[in-house]
Every structure is written in C-alpha cells, then in structure tokens.
Design a protein around this nucleic acid. Structure first.
Lengths: 222, 222, 222, 222
DNA sequence: CATGAATGAGCCTTCATTCAT
DNA sequence: CATGAATGAAGGCTCATTCAT
C-alpha cells in the first residue's frame, strides 16, 4: 500500500491527475457540501482544467461518490475498527479500541478527516450516495458494535436493549463529530476538545458506557 | 406572542404577509438548507410576490435569521425545557423532564420541528447565525443541564467530569435527530424510532445516563 | 390590428420586451437554426439581458415554439391563403391565388420570411415543434389545395391522383424556398429569382400545373 | 476507386480506419447535421480513437467535405444519371430514366442515402462545401436535364421557358426528399411514400411534366 | 503511426437582487 | 405599500482541438 511511494515512475500520470482531483474535491466537498461545492473551485485547487472532472468522472455527482469511496478506504486503512486489538480480546477491551479508533478517525487530518465530515453532511442532508454508504460502511460497523455490546449485556445482538445501548454509545462519539462548531463556541476559552487527547475522551466514553450497561437494571435506577 | 395585537387595526395584512413568508421559509430552509433554498420557492409557497422577501426582510440571509428566531420562540413556547416540572424537584426528575422535553421538540411537527432541523444544519454547516443561536439558546440550556448533572455527581458545574457527562447525555439526544436518515436505512423493517414513543426513549437515556454517572468511579470500571 | 400603432402608451412595456425578443429570435433561428442559435446572440440583438429569455419564455425551446407561432400568425395575416379571391371563384382562379400567396410569403421580408425558413429547417431537421406546425398550419392548407385540385380533376379529395398532383404542385413552390442557395449559385449572372416577379413565377407554376392536370390522361402521354 | 490498391501492402489498416471514419461520419452527419454531429460520436461508431479524425482529416470541417465527396462518388457509381438508357434515346425516355435514377438515389439506403440528406441540409443551411457541390455535381446534372427539356420543348437550353420547366421538374423530385417528415405526419395512416414504388412515382412525375410541357402554350391554359 | 489525457471557450440555465411603477 | 420586470454573475456541462508519449 505505502509501497507506492517507493517507485514513483510507473504510475501513469493519469492516476496523478485523478488523485489530485479527488483530494481537492474531498477538501471542498467536506468544507462546503456537495451543492455549494463548485467544479471550478475543485479544479482550481487541483491545478487542472475545468473539463478534467467531466473527463475523469463524468459529472459532479459521480466525482462526489468517488470521493466518498476514496476517503472511506483511506480512513479504514489508517484506523482499522479495532486498531491492533485482537477480535478474541475481551469485549471491554474491544469496546475501548472501537471507540478510540472512531475518535481517531474523527479528529484526524487529511482524507480521513473529510470522510467524517462528508458523512455528517450526508446525515443531515442525504444525497443519493447515502444508501451505498450505509450498506457498505456503516452497517458492518454497526453490527460489529452490537456484537460487542451484546457480549457485555449477555444478550443476543437483536435484543432491543442491545440496540438502544448501541445507539447511546454511538451517539456520544458522533456528537463530537457533528457538533464541533457548537462546542468551540460554547467553550471558547478552553483548548479545542480534540487536543484533550482522543485517548482520554475515548476513556471517558468507555467508562461512562460500561458503567451504564452494567447497572442499567439496578433497582435503584428506576 | 399575542402581545402583538396591542396595536389593533393598522397593519393586519402586513403582518400576515410576514408570517406567511416566515412559515414558508421555515419549511423550505428546514428541508433543503439555507443555500439550496430559493427565494422563488419560498415566495411561491407563501403566495406572495418574489420581491416580498427583499421588501420585508432585506435579503435572504436576514430572513433566515428571523426564521431561526421565530422557530426558536415557537419551540420553547411549546415545550419549555423542564416541561411542567418544578425547578425545585429532585435532580433526577429534572433530568428526565429535560430529556423528555428535548425529544418532544425533536420529534414534533410544524415550526418546532424545523427548529431542530435548522439547528442540525447549523451544526454541520454553520452560517453567521450560529453565534447568536449558541449565545441565546444553546448556552442557557447547556448551563441548565450542567447544573443538573453537577447536582447528581456532587461536583461544581465547571468540573471537567461534569462537562464530559453533560456532553455524553446531550450526545445521545442529538443523535436521534441527526442520524435519522441513517437509522431508517439501518433498520428499515422496524417502525421509525420516533414512534417508539419519545417517552420510552427519554426513559432509556435517563436510566442509561443515571446508571453511568452513579457508577462512573466504581473501581471495577477502570 | 394595426390600430396598435395609434396609441403607443397603453402597451405595458412588458409586451415590448417580449416582442423584441421574438423578433430577434426569429432572425437568429431563421438564419442559423435552433441548435446553433445562442440565447446570448438573441438577447444581444434584442438589447435585453440574457436572463430575459428565461423570464419571459422559460427556456430556449419554448421561445422557439413561440417564434414559430408568432411568425405563422404574421405570415397568414399578411398574405391569406387565397389573397382577396373569393372562395366561390372558379378553381383555376383560386389555384393561381393560392400559389401567388404562397410565393409572396416565400419571398417576403421580416417575420413572414423567417416563417418559411424555419419551416424549411423543420422539414430537414425536425424538432418537437413540427407536429404542432403540421397539425395547425400545414394540414389545413394541404386540405384546401387538395379541394382545389379535386375540383379541377373532377375527382374526390381523397383520390390518389389528386394527392399526387397536389404534391407535384406544392413541390414546385417549396422548391424555390428550399433551394435558393443552390439556385443563386447555379445562375449567378442572373438576378435572383425572386425579383423575376413572384407574379410571373406564380403564373408559370399555375399554367404548368393546369396543363399537366388537364392532359394527364391523354393517350399520347403514356 | 480500387485504383488505390496499386500500392499493395503498405497501408491496409490505415485505409480501413479512414473508411470506417467516413462511413460513420456519413451516418452521423446525415442524421443530425454538421454542427450537431460530434467528433466523439463519429469516432465511437467507427471504433477509433477520438483523435483519429484530426489525425486523418485535419479537422471536422475537412472530414465533412470528404464525406460529401465520398458519398457523391458512391451515389453516382450506384445510380448513373440515365441508368442504362442510351444518351441517344428519345428525350421522353431519357427524362423518365433521369427522374427514376434521381428517386432511386433519394430513397436508397447506405452511403447513397446520406448523400441526398447531406445535400438537403446543405440547401437549407449551406456550409462552405456547397460551392464545390454545385460546381461539380449539381451543375452538370442541371445542364443535362435542361438539354432534355430543351429537346422536348423545341427550344435552346438557355431559354427561360426551358429553365422554368426544368425547375418545375426538379422541384417535384426534390420535394419527396425534403418534406418526408411532413408527409409522414400528413398521411400517417398510409405507408410511407417511398414504398409506393419509386418507379410509379417516377412515372407520375414524368407524365405530369410531359403533359405540362406539351400543352403549356395551349390557348385555353391562359 | 496512433493514442489517451488535457485544454479553454462557450452553451443554457438559475439565482438573489434591484428598479420603475 | 407592493409588485412584476429586468439584471448580471455564476454554475454544470459539452465541445473540437492539441499535446506528450
């Protein structure tokens, strides 16, 4: 994968242009969204002619879809769902790794970073691409997390308690993604949350959620 | 609201036009966002001339801001933050009311419903209006919730533990709002989550969060 | 009709712009065809903004259709099918008038002139507008001519002999329309055919066709 | 044509590509016209690279001219002006053959068919190629027909009566070519005119025109 | 000898806004 | 007080053509 950087010659120079466009489009789509992004701006940033998008991707919409696929691949290559934790590790450890990986993706830079922003935008203002994203990317991760939660609760993955707890956990992670503009305004005097250390944040969410799941049915909680 | 009727006869038609535009603009902004909304569409729905927006509000951006204020007022009038629970009630009870009120606003219809959608959009794609929203609407609610959480944890509102728990709670609520397009695709066979009953959902989040906060520092959770 | 020129004031100034666009579009469409005509050129000639076409006609195609209707109305107003000859006149006289009127339209200037050119283009390269043209304009004239020919031949209008002779007559007229670019190259030294006098040309076609029809079944012609 | 094969081996592929482009371009130009034809479409149909047109023909316009020459050669090779009738045959017989040959070309398929369509388009919307076409193709045929008509009328070829009658005859033939889109709409229930049999149609035009010419100066026709 | 990649001009359309009435 | 008409700036896309290989 990163062997590519060893031999710069063989790549047919067409790939370079394509990649430049993808990178530029990723930035622009992430920062202003699909509709407000202009092909002109993307091409200007990529340093290519305005007709290059049409030539390489057909139209703006196809380019957008390719950007989503490209950034998703980059994101999962950079931070696998469980990082380096074994699938055979205890559920608690896998949960911590899963959340840490999620937040690392959320607070990363480059292609991995736009991926999260693009998906945030898709959630609030879905385009035709959302179906594919959910099917190929979100559903597998959702199932993985439900498996972990099911183990911790000692219930089957289809159980409604499991489903609600899974959503409560995901919600906490997603929140930092979606609401960053609000958080920076709410706590301007503090350093941005992402420099708090994603590890420490992951630790909080893990401990908060584990405590919740373990005592959810305590009589006193009712 | 109906204090406006103090000055009785002089401008019934004028106010009506303004309100029609606000209502129409709210629907349109909520469904397609600020930039994709067109003044033509708004005026067409409101049944007024295309120049009426600029006449009554100056420009599209000012109209948007007025819509935000209008819908915020409606939302908080319809569902006050603690519903009918006394500020002197126990913290647990106020937490439950606070979350229930939040979800009621989230899943409501009409002007109150756009408000949530508009704010979701603001979070992902902030306009100049976000500063005012945070200052006037979100910050007070955030402080109120932090007060409740501080009471439960037995710590001051500025404590970082309090802050993190507050975010974990808000994150769960916001999640159902932001991610509805994803949830309906993930669980297509099930009825939409909002018909699960906002009360039951509020109950889950309350219990999950209370259990978490009460056992956050248990030695076994580390 | 021409009373309009008496009172210039009442016309709402919107009509003026519409008409300017129609006139300019007629010229441009007639000279380069629908696809090669540009909205920019049309608006430049009309002295209006480029968005005016969209405002008044919706799009280029609708404008084109309106130009066809406009020019057809002008053409038939200027030269009615039988000129001033009574429908009760002898068939031969009506034939001569019909052909004369046709050629007058063909060799006229202004809106009436483009009408012919636009229809020529429609024949060689039909757009969606041809169906309407045939139905509303060409079919009635075709039926009128077939009636005249039928009278002369002493046969019913649906007879095939009548149909073929009608086409032979129309073909002679249309020819001067369609093939002018060829004729001016074939006979460059001569004055353009249209200055030969449309009356003389109509006379030739009338006499040629009458002679043909009267002796079509002579034994010697076989 | 097959004189090209004199230089035997060296360029079989090159010629093949040229011919493929010519054939594809002929179809496309004939069906949508010069300006609406795209180089991409032509190359796609020919199965060659998009740069091949500019490589082999310089530019689109030159290709068009070559297509005209190519199709003209094919048309006259397939249907010589008098078919197999001797130049010494009686004028009436040569007229019939001339018209029959014309209609055969008109209603043929393949390269010969586009030729007629291309020329129709040239007449309504001349490009720079029309001068050459008139000089090399149309003028000789025009002179040939005027010779025949002159014989029948017993007048010299330059006589105006001869010229007018020639145009009346040509007009009838051209008509079926140019106005097919109109004719199919005028008589939708009937089979297309070209299946009426080109022979029968040629027969009608011949008899119509002969009858006309023979009695053109009858006193009763005035 | 021939190609795929890249170019820049130009098209139709749409938009928020302003102007004259 | 309010309107319909008109504006000019972009936006996405397509095209014939050229260039480096």
């Amino acid at each position: 994968m990163n062997l590519n950087t060893v031999s710069p010659a063989p790549e047919p120079a067409q790939v370079a242009t394509r990649t430049q466009i993808l990178e530029a489009a990723g930035e622009v789509f992430a920062s202003v969204g699909f509709r407000d992004a202009t092909v002109r701006e993307i091409c200007a940033r990529a340093g290519v002619n305005i007709a290059a998008v049409n030539y390489h991707f057909g139209d703006k919409e196809t380019l957008y879809l390719e950007v989503l696929r490209y950034s998703a691949a980059q994101a999962h290559a950079q931070y696998p769902p469980l990082l380096n934790v074994s699938p055979a590790a205890p559920a608690e450890e896998r949960l911590r790794a899963f959340l840490h990986s999620w937040l690392l993706r959320t607070f990363s830079r480059g292609a991995t970073a736009w991926h999260g922003q693009l998906i945030s935008r898709e959630m609030v203002d879905p385009t035709g691409a959302l179906d594919e994203i959910v099917r190929d990317k979100i559903l597998p991760m959702s199932q993985q997390l439900r498996g972990i939660v099911g183990e911790i609760l000692g219930r089957p993955p289809g159980d409604e308690q499991v489903r609600l707890c899974t959503l409560s956990i995901v919600g906490q992670c997603v929140f930092y993604h979606h609401c960053r503009p609000v958080l920076t305004r709410l706590f301007p005097q503090q350093p941005p949350l992402d420099t708090l250390g994603t590890e420490r944040l992951a630790d909080h969410i893990t401990r908060f959620s584990l405590a919740a799941m373990r005592h959810l049915t305590d009589p006193a909680t009712t």
